[in-house]
């Protein structure tokens, strides 16, 4: 039991150490707010101001600030526009939820449609039995044969 507990603690410690805040993480979460208005995420920006911002973030990480605190200080300076994606809270949450909600609803609609069309097909096929087909006139049987041929062509 002790060994198991120790293993969990070890894995937890390893995970925690691998989750240490990196500059890359912050660079990906903020926009370059240079006076040139380059409009790039900081991690993708090579403008002359970008290194200055990176330096500031590196200092903040060194001082032991966590991601939330660093981003909050950035928001305080430049507003929410300074972040590269909406925060997952309040009204901004709709940005994240709506695409999946729409997909879910549209998926439900598509499934309902497929089921409805399938039911229609089942009803149609049940409406005529084999003996009934044999009672058809020669002309109707030919038409039925042609329909079957057409359906078979669909698979080619």
């Amino acid at each position: 039991m002790r060994i198991l507990l120790l293993t969990f603690v070890f894995i937890f410690t390893l995970q925690a150490s691998s989750q240490a805040l990196t500059l890359k993480e912050i660079e990906g979460a903020v926009m370059c707010m240079c006076p040139d208005n380059c409009g790039k995420v900081l991690i993708n920006c090579s403008c002359k101001y970008s290194d200055e911002y990176r330096h500031t973030f590196a200092e903040q990480i060194k001082q032991g600030m966590n991601k939330k605190a660093i981003l909050q200080s950035w928001i305080n300076k430049y507003g929410e526009k300074g972040l590269s994606a909406p925060i997952k809270e309040g009204f901004n949450l709709t940005a994240w939820i709506v695409p999946f909600l729409a997909l879910f609803l549209a998926g439900g609609l598509v499934f309902t449609l497929i089921r409805k069309w399938n039911k229609k097909a089942l009803n149609n096929s049940e409406s005529m039995t084999e003996p009934e087909q044999k009672n058809l006139s020669k002309e109707d049987q030919d038409i039925l044969k042609k329909i079957k041929n057409d359906l078979n062509d669909l698979d080619t």
Binding site: N44, E80, S84, A85, P86, L103
Partner: peptide, 28 residues
């Protein structure tokens, strides 16, 4: 396509609703 359109237009929607302009970038 819808998620891309939604993300592209969300800064305008946010500004219209909250009066705050935000950025929707690669992480989203």
């Amino acid at each position: 396509a819808f998620a891309t359109l939604w993300g592209t237009l969300f800064p305008i929607i946010s500004e219209a609703v909250r009066g705050i302009k935000i950025t929707v970038g690669p992480p989203f």
